[in-house]
Design a protein around this nucleic acid. Structure first.
Lengths: 348, 348
DNA sequence: CTGAAAGCGCTTACAG
DNA sequence: CTGAAAGCGCTTACAG
């Protein structure tokens, strides 16, 4: 009978207080040092192929899951990607977010979503709170923000991609399309269909909405209809109900209007339904067009003419671009224009 | 002239490599120990009022922001709350999420959102990844999940609130309403309006949808119309377009139908628009009702009868309940029933 | 290609 | 009511 070792020397390794399987456990099981496990699992630097296999087997056998907090503390970089969007009530942003998430999650990143409600103060607060988490990357909507917010982004050194617009500033990164061009194209479409008294009706009035309005005005001016330019702007949040209200307002204030370009499909959908209730002939008496091609627009009566915007592709490409930046890889096209498409349906 | 001190002894405190202001910096500035700063800032335990003030002043002056990673590592509890929802394409869940977020963010929690796509495997994967982040709390949709997912939740020890249904199991926590009761109430409403051939049309077929269907069947049976029970079920994802398709299918297969109860408003909205295109008289020939009272339902032609569900309140109350759990406070009502409301409009 | 040492910035027991 | 010590679980330089 072999002599019993004293208790104090017994265990090869004491179980953690937390019960968690750690890097050290994997290292011991694989017979290597913790740092080798770290490197093997992250695929960082060269580790002998044989060791990599042994480490991976041990990690799997023990059910090892790296601790993001420890990783973040040691590397001063978390696996979080913060995404800032203005509102969750606009389907556009939800789809954008969904696409970002679908691309980022399989790569091991966690999405932290921040809603700014189109408010500079809220955006700063969200940014401050998120940057404290040392995110690996940042995706923000548009390029319009307070100087303070901009300074926080720059000062943080966190890679950042701006979405929905295409920028051109040196040093920045963006994925989107030209809101102005899109506004111009849709207006041109209405003009091509023979409309002359085209009104631009917008709500919410964020910078992208205003840019579309500028495109609209340019298209009108280009064909000598500067005198017919009619922008109806409401700072209220966009909604179907508001679309109906604004339709009535335009018809009352500018009875000669023969086409309305709504800045977002929800307004246009609401206007279409209001027209139905009023017995207003669309497109006979009035052409109606929207923007974004949101769910339901193709189901309207009549189906809604609109601009299809590539928010899902924008989300995916922004995620790809950000991943390249986070890995320190070069980005061939720092400002990626994904374009848009005028979708003609029976409402115009 | 005073003698110059040697360089090596000069600085009171060396700047961190990271440049970050730490607890130690605040402690030094306030003339207390780091642990006192920690306690004063978290409001934990009793700290002399005078010290609290001094610490807070120093923290503010230095612009101190606690490091969530360090905090999580030391306390083995992060400031993240993970929220699991089935889909981002259903407005219902987006509003729920928004409400949760609005309640949690001001309290210093970060929301980690996980989309399961109604898939058990995806749910397990998301859960595994989230639990590695040691969330402070968890909010999940419904109470239907794989045994593996359930075991992960239980085993993690993370406080968890289930939303959208009200449970009754001992030991659990939930905020929602009775889907079955709601299904019954809406059906009863249609019966009260004189309808006899009421069909229940559902897509997606998640457990809540099926429960509503059971409520529907019960209401039919209760008035002796068991023979008229007609459930039309499609496993496809819910959408407006599908609503139109299913409407046509019901009219073709069961021409005697005089009312349809759609399991979600998007289907019902699509059906209403299809009816418009077909020239089908609603509610004269057919009554149409939906569920959830989603945006746009009140704008339809005719406006849609539906059940208003309190998802915002559910989100808020779930957040409140979870915060109590995370703080170890007692929860007076572990299963909170927030009810629902039948909203009668012109479509029935 | 592999490792020993130090440290990231907090909080948790344990004392007093 | 306050503090000194230890440790959470990793990764970053620095060596070899």
């Amino acid at each position: 009978m072999p002599p019993r070792k004293p208790d104090s020397a017994a265990p090869h390794r004491r179980a953690r207080a937390t019960g968690r399987v750690t890097l050290a456990d994997v290292a011991e099981a694989a017979g290597v040092s913790p740092i080798t496990v770290s490197r093997a699992l992250r695929g960082e630097r060269a580790v002998a192929a044989e060791l990599v296999e042994r480490v991976q087997a041990a990690a799997t056998a023990l059910g090892y899951v790296p601790d993001p907090a420890a990783r973040a503390l040691a590397s001063s970089r978390s696996s979080h990607v913060a995404v800032l969007i203005p509102k969750l009530s606009n389907t556009l942003f939800v789809e954008l977010l969904d696409a970002v998430q679908i691309s980022l999650v399989p790569a091991g990143y966690q999405t932290l979503i921040g809603v700014t409600h189109y408010d500079a103060g809220e955006e700063e607060a969200v940014l401050r709170s998120f940057l404290a988490h040392r995110p690996a990357g940042l995706i923000v909507t548009g390029s319009d923000r307070s100087a303070a917010a901009e300074a926080m982004i720059q000062g943080s050194g966190v890679p950042c991609v701006r979405v929905m617009e295409v920028g051109s500033e040196e040093g920045g990164f963006s994925v989107g399309f030209s809101q102005r061009e899109a506004g111009r194209a849709l207006t041109q479409h209405l003009l091509d269909r023979g409309r002359r008294h085209v009104a631009y009706v917008a709500a919410q009035l964020d910078p992208r909405t205003l840019e579309r309005g500028e495109g609209y005005a340019e298209a009108m001016q280009a064909v000598g209809l500067a005198g017919h330019v009619n922008k109806v702007l409401s700072a209220e949040p966009s909604s179907m109900a508001l679309g109906g209200v604004l339709l009535e307002r335009v018809l009352r204030e500018s009875p000669g209007t023969d086409a309305i370009f709504f800045c977002n499909d929800d307004l246009a959908q609401g206007a279409l339904l209001a027209a139905l209730r009023m017995g207003l002939d669309v497109p006979g008496r009035l052409a109606v067009a929207g923007f974004n091609d949101l769910p339901g627009s193709d189901q309207m009566v009549p189906p809604l003419t609109t601009v299809a915007t590539p928010r899902r592709e924008i989300g995916e490409q922004a995620a790809q671009m950000l991943m390249a930046l986070m890995r320190g890889q070069p980005v061939p096209t720092p400002h990626l224009d994904l374009g848009f498409r005028v979708v003609q349906r029976a409402s115009s």
